[in-house]
Amino acid sequence: MEKVLELKDVSVHFGGIKCVQHVNLHLNRGEILALIGPNGAGKTTIFNVITGIYQPTMGSAEVGGQPIAGLKTHQITALGLARTFQNIRLFKDLSVRDNILIAMDRTAPSSMVASILRTRSFLAREVKKNTAVDELLEIFSLQHIDEETEAKNLPYGVQRRLEIARAIATGARTLLLDEPAAGMNGNETESLMETIRFIRKRFDLSILLIEHDMRLVMGISERVAVLEYGKKIAEGNPKEVQNDPNVIRAYLGTE
């Protein structure tokens, strides 16, 4: 099977602290893989390595078969990978539409001259992007929000959905979702699961997600990898992982 994302023996150290140790991980095309583990296990650190925010101390990462060492974050995004953030990093003072448009600009940029002169091709591109934004707004049930609303004034759950929409707008085929259901209630989580299943099909996505909500993890992921103290302690389908003694120990402690 084609691997859209692969970590090879990745370690990340900050001074003496070993956040991630010798982790091997891969994401297959079209798959949903959940990365779980107690707080501080190094999950978000792995996201930061994949998106080029941190350089791994050892090991390497590949996106779509291409090593990402030395690439800047926006160059990795250009390889077709986008993420959301655990603590939501929307463009707070900008409108819902602008938030998505910024991400979409990557897919159809105009030159400075064309932009300022408002050439035909510029206008055509803007129309195309705006139509695509309309579709995303509808998928994430954001279409009824006043377009001038600034992102910071949206309810929490809506912000999370907008962030996912924004990530897809980059044209990414691989999505990293950092705790997409955090702070959501049961119903919201339920509909989020629906949405994730839908967008996977609609945009042909492969998804790596970090999540603490076990219902979501067990409900939509094909595979689960478990991290503890920076080490991968288990990997497999949800059933296997659920019954893995190491995982039970990590989550419940030993008697």
């Binding site: 974050t73 250009a78 986008a82 990093r89 003072d93 600009d105 105009s110 980059t170």
Partner: peptide, 20 residues
Amino acid sequence: NQGRGMQAVREDEVAAEAMG
């Protein structure tokens, strides 16, 4: 796209980079 890119940098550089 130029103007929006600038605004994105103003709002949040990390997120702007991550959005390409």
